[in-house]
Amino acid sequence: MAPERETGTRERAATGATAAGRPRVRLDQPRAPRRRLLPEYDPEAFGRLSERIARFLGTGRFIVWMTVVIIIWVLWNTSAPADLRFDHYPFIFLTFMLSLQASYAAPLILLAQNRQDDRDRVNLEQDRKQNERSIADTEYLTREIASLRAGLGEVATRDWIRSELQDLVRDLEERYAEGPPDRPGVFPAERPRGRDVDDR
Rank of each mutant, 00 (worst) to 15 (best):
M1R: 11
E4H: 12
E4M: 14
E4A: 15
E6H: 09
G16I: 00
A17R: 07
A20D: 09
G21F: 06
P23K: 11
R24M: 08
R26C: 07
P30I: 08
R34I: 08
R34N: 11
R35H: 07
L38C: 14
E40V: 12
D42A: 12
E44T: 09
F46S: 04
E51Q: 02
A54N: 01
R55L: 07
G60E: 07
F62G: 05
T67I: 00
V69G: 02
I70K: 05
V74F: 07
L75K: 02
S79R: 09
P81E: 11
D83S: 15
L84M: 12
D87F: 03
Y89I: 11
P90F: 14
F91M: 05
L94G: 06
T95F: 06
T95W: 07
F96I: 15
F96L: 15
Q101N: 09
Y104R: 01
A106S: 10
L111M: 10
Q113I: 15
Q116K: 02
D117H: 10
D118S: 11
L124G: 15
L124M: 15
E125L: 15
Q126V: 14
K129E: 08
N131L: 13
N131D: 12
E132F: 00
I135E: 13
I135C: 06
A136E: 01
A136M: 00
Y140M: 13
E144A: 11
I145K: 01
A146Y: 11
S147M: 13
L148N: 13
R149L: 07
G151P: 02
E154N: 03
D159A: 12
D159H: 09
I161W: 02
I161P: 02
E164N: 11
E164Y: 08
L168V: 00
A177R: 10
E178Y: 03
G179M: 07
P180V: 00
R183H: 00
P184E: 14
G185Q: 01
G185W: 03
P188D: 03
E190T: 06
G194K: 02
R195H: 09
R200N: 05
